[in-house]
Design a protein around this nucleic acid. Structure first.
Length: 957
RNA sequence: GCACGGGUACCCAAGCGGUCAAAGGGGCAGGGUUUAGGACCCUGUGGCUUAGUGCCUUCCCAGGUUCGAAUCCUGGCCCGUGCACCA
């Protein structure tokens, strides 16, 4: 049977809309099920990657409808931030690449591009008019979205809500102001993300500690280090004698460092000034007070100091920095150099390595050890870089501070590092400095720097109490799949304060700083709550939505009469909104992609925890995997995409939905392979056609009486029920792939077997199967299911108003009997193949005699296979004992397969086989006979004695 | 570097202590049906054997636990994803 897929889709989509099937209202008697999926950024065309995320959500939603729940699935459009603006600007400039993308990939008619030149029009067009856009896609795929609640993140009411959200966070003390280092483009005067770069993607920055060495004249020579804990091993400073260093006024102090350092420091410290210069050579030989150890150490010349890194001055720790050690050796050997700078040879030769860190790998002078091992010759040796990394890694992870480190003695290095740094900074002996790890160039061509932003606002995710409470929320949530729970926990630990304002983009203005908008990740964390009232709140002008109004709706705070009067909002409306929120919340599932666990998903849990009472926090998350196309990442700009509109055109919405679920579970990475899908579609189509045919033929039949079923019919009934049982189990765990397989390809196999076994068409049985099948299929393939349900089976109401079948108990003996026939059938087939006969004359089956079953019964009591024990136990049965030696092979066979046979109950094999006589005769086109081993009237080759439980002996001719 | 996940036959992928030479696809080979092409159905797909069997070598590598390991433990190698102002 064939379907006109497109016609069916149109028909039922219209019907669902007309009957408001997916527009739920508060029904106190029904359990609420609210599922929410991260709303999309409506920029561009919808492809199968997006479709997968939303299809999973829709299937879970529809499944819960079929469980009898009141289901809410809303949808909105996230348009905050810069992408819309960037696209509009690019179109404005008629950027050829962008124009091409919009016309060729997004299929937007060239004349329409004119409409897209303001953000408002752009958003409206993308949402409502774009044929390849998301909304069009959602509708085409038959999603059960309640469109009354549709929203955009720039709606005035929504903005009011976001404002309220931040005020709540502020009240709890989770909004704070501080300093923050960012990668910054001095030309554009704005922070830069990876996508804004010409060069240097993924390059981060490191936090250096600036150590301040006081000279006799009060100035500070400043050295930058990544290893503040090694101050205890300092022996001297290194600098480049030929370089001219800057004297920098920092507050009341004067610092000495390279000119490059000054340029970078300007971005990180306010009000600093270069007030002079001094040549490196002038500093050589001077004594300075080393921080941390409060000892005077000399400034010495070296060849390795790079003015572009740090301050161009390096503190020397020869025990743990290979290059320091080598430079020291070089200097000690170079009498000329010592003389040239007028240094005391005695002093230079007197410098000794001070051990400070101990590891198993390198002892207590790691640098000395590794220089020896690698045979490093001088400070120009290329092996130094590797040596440094090696020593650093080992020291940091495994090292322990030794007795030369004062109160830090005995402490692991990775701990001491932070503490030493903190202490030096507190004592005013050190400062921090950020340095990019590599070259970073902005799109505008300017080289980027690290800037420390003053007055930056943060959300304090680092707050230990907040973390703890959020973890508690997490504990009570179901995470699908469970295996991501540890990741959530780790993310919670790792989260630090997050800057929450930006200067560019669409969004809500930050309440405490004019001209700044709330960072776009921050306006999409508790909006699920807003959806519960978004259809009602549209009726209210935004300026009426004061803090008290939202307090009442979402927290139940305040006096309704007063709020109604003061804000000019009808009391009934307020009450209705409060009750919507109360009914739908907490959210059952928040659905999003795995890569959003470290931000969106975690922020959402944190903010729910901060703002809502415990019973209104989230109940669960579903975390979805990526989708790739033929093993490659999809990319609109490269044209490597499959668009939903095209695909629905090709194979139909239901098949798109099904095959997005069919190959892996939702959280796994999925590879979309068009060729394999094509094959699958045609198989599935014919299977569904078959079922539809059965539906038509059996729709008027009487009710099934299961207890009267026999043989293969009883088997099919039970087999179908066990498929449904498994289907339900999988659905509960959101294992949509396994669930889908149970009711499609696996069920198809069952039917295939039944078709060669059946003696007649049992209409009531077919009706039972088709009806229940359609209900299970409906979440996956709603249109076809509705068509079969209403049109072919003649039901009046939508299939989504029906209830799924209950789980049923399975009679294992019925399954066993059929399994027995199947094995006998396969055995006979095998024999026929091996002896190579075209056609058999006669086939004879001999079933095992009673005593062999007795062996099984006895040894089943054994916990595990054990031949000796098996013999002993089996021989306690008289019927076995009297067989003597002949029993041994039987015992061995059953013992070897004990695990398998433990599940096997005794059935009347002879009767079962006889019931399938016609089947065997038909399949092999020969006469077939059955005997019990003991009453084998015909046994020319003495095969009968080889019969075993569940494995009849066979004779053929 | 840190965090999380993963390595299974030609490819994708199930299995997660015995019923495992290892489900299901795809590919490939042979056969059937049809035939312009396709579509469809069956059989085979580690090796050697065989009246439905038995044996050998396999589930990244190396050790270990166990009567028994693809499955559990330890160590190593390799791969994927995320790492914050980007939605």
């Amino acid at each position: 049977m064939d379907f006109d897929l497109k016609a069916i889709e149109r028909k039922w989509q219209k019907e669902w809309q007309d009957s408001c099937l997916f527009e739920p209202f508060v029904e106190k008697k029904k359990e609420a099920f609210y599922i929410q999926v991260a709303y999309p950024y409506p920029s561009g065309a919808m492809h199968i990657g997006h479709a997968r995320t939303y299809t999973v959500t829709d299937i879970v939603a529809k499944y819960n409808m079929l469980k009898g729940k009141n289901v809410l699935m809303p949808m909105g459009w996230h348009v905050s931030g810069t992408p819309v603006i960037a696209s509009v600007e690019a179109l404005e400039k008629n950027d050829p690449k962008t124009v091409k993308k919009f016309t060729e990939i997004f299929h937007i008619p060239a004349k329409d591009l004119e409409e897209l030149k303001t953000p408002e029009f752009y958003v409206d067009y993308m949402v409502n008019k774009a044929e390849y856009g998301y909304k069009a896609g959602f509708k085409r795929l038959g999603f059960g979205i309640d469109w009354r609640r549709e929203l955009k993140t720039i709606d005035p009411q929504y903005k009011k809500f976001i404002e309220w959200q931040y005020k709540k966070l502020y009240e709890k003390g989770f909004i704070r102001k501080g300093k923050y280092p960012v990668r910054y483009c001095p030309h554009d005067d704005s922070p830069v993300g990876d996508h804004d770069l010409l060069e240097g993607e993924g390059v981060g920055f490191q936090e250096f500690t600036l150590l301040k060495f006081k000279m006799d004249n009060g100035q500070f020579v400043v050295a930058a280090t990544l290893r503040p804990e090694t101050v205890f091993g300092q022996t001297n400073l290194w600098l480049a004698p030929k370089v001219e260093y800057a004297i920098i006024k920092v507050g009341d102090e004067e610092w000495i460092g390279s000119n490059e350092f000054f340029e970078k420091l300007k971005e990180q410290k306010k009000g600093i000034e270069k007030i002079g210069t001094i040549k490196g050579s002038e500093l050589v030989g001077k004594m300075v007070l080393a921080p941390g150890i409060e000892r005077k150490i000399p400034i010495l010349p070296s060849f390795f100091c790079d003015t572009g890194t740090g301050t161009g001055i390096v503190t020397s720790v020869p025990s743990d920095a290979p290059i320091d050690y080598v430079a020291l050796l070089d200097l000690q050997k170079d009498k000329d150099l010592i003389k040239k700078f007028g240094l005391s040879e005695k002093m230079i030769l007197g410098i000794k390595v001070i051990p400070i860190i101990k590891t198993k790998e390198f002892g207590d002078k790691a640098a000395v050890e590794i220089v020896k091992r690698l045979g490093i010759k001088n400070q120009f040796d290329s092996k130094l870089e590797g040596a440094k990394k090696e020593v650093y890694k080992t020291g940091f992870h495994k090292g322990v501070m030794n007795e030369n480190c004062g109160k830090f003695a005995g402490m692991p290095v990775n701990k001491a590092k932070e503490l030493v740094k903190k202490e030096l900074i507190e004592q005013g002996k050190a400062d921090v400095f950020f340095e990019l790890e590599g070259k970073v160039v902005c799109r505008c061509g300017t080289e980027c720097v690290v800037r420390v932003l003053e007055d930056q606002w943060f959300v304090s995710y680092s707050d230990p109490k907040w973390k703890e409470q959020s973890k508690k929320t997490l504990e009570g949530m179901s995470i699908v799949p469970e295996l991501f729970r540890t990741q959530y926990n780790n993310v919670f630990d790792w989260l630090e304060d997050k800057p929450c304002t930006r200067s560019k983009g669409l969004g809500t203005e930050f309440p405490w700083q004019k001209g700044k908008i709330i960072e776009p990740l921050g306006d999409s964390t508790i909006y699920m709550a807003y959806f519960t009232v978004s259809h009602l709140i549209k009726r209210i002008e935004a300026q009426k939505l004061s803090e008290e109004v939202f307090d009442f709706i979402f927290l139940g705070k305040g006096n309704i009469e007063k709020i109604s009067k003061e804000n000019g909002i009808e009391k009934e409306l307020l009450e209705e909104m409060r009750s919507e929120f109360n009914y739908w919340y907490p959210l059952a599932f928040n659905v999003s992609a795995i890569e959003l666990i470290p931000n969106h998903m975690s922020f959402s849990i944190f903010q729910h925890t901060a703002i809502f009472p415990p019973e209104k926090r989230q109940l669960g998350t579903i975390n979805l995997g990526m989708l790739v196309l033929e093993g490659k990442k999809m990319s609109s700009s490269k044209g490597n995409v499959v668009l939903i509109n095209d695909l629905c055109e090709q194979i139909g919405a239901d098949f798109v939905r099904f095959f997005l679920m069919n190959s892996v579970e939702p959280w796994e990475e999925m590879d979309w392979k068009p060729k394999e899908i094509e094959k699958g579609v045609s198989k599935l189509k014919s299977f569904i056609g078959e079922i539809a045919q059965l539906a038509v033929e059996s729709k008027d039949s009487e009710k099934l009486e299961p207890e009267k079923l026999q043989g293969e019919e009883a088997w099919l009934y039970h087999r179908f029920n066990s498929r449904v049982n498994a289907f339900i189990d999988h659905m509960e765990r959101i294992e949509l792939r396994s669930a889908a397989q149970q009711i499609s390809f696996l069920l198809a196999k069952d039917l295939q077997w039944f078709n060669i076994r059946k003696k007649r068409d049992n209409k009531p049985l077919y009706l039972y199967i088709t009806k229940n099948f359609v209900k299970c299929l409906a979440p996956f393939m709603p249109h076809i299911s509705e068509e079969i349900w209403r049109n072919l089976l003649g039901n009046k109401r939508s299939v989504f108003l029906e209830k799924l079948p209950e789980k049923k108990e399975i009679d294992c003996k019925i399954e066993l009997a059929e399994e027995f026939i199947k094995r006998a059938f396969l055995d006979l087939k095998e024999i026929k193949k091996i002896i190579g006969k075209e056609k058999l004359q006669k086939a004879v089956f001999y079933t095992a005699s009673e005593w062999k079953w007795n062996v099984l019964k006895k040894i089943k009591k054994l916990e595990r296979p054990d031949f000796k024990e098996a013999i002993k136990t089996a021989m306690t049965d008289l019927s076995v004992k009297e067989k003597g030696k002949a029993a041994i092979p039987v015992i061995k066979f059953l013992n070897d397969r004990l695990i398998e046979f433990k599940e096997i109950e005794k059935i009347n094999e002879l009767k079962v086989l006889e019931s399938a006589k016609e089947f065997f005769e038909k399949e092999f086109n020969c006469s077939v006979f059955f005997f019990n081993e003991e009453k084998a009237e015909f046994d020319p080759q003495k095969k009968a004695s080889k019969a075993l439980p569940f494995k009849p002996a066979i004779y053929v001719e």
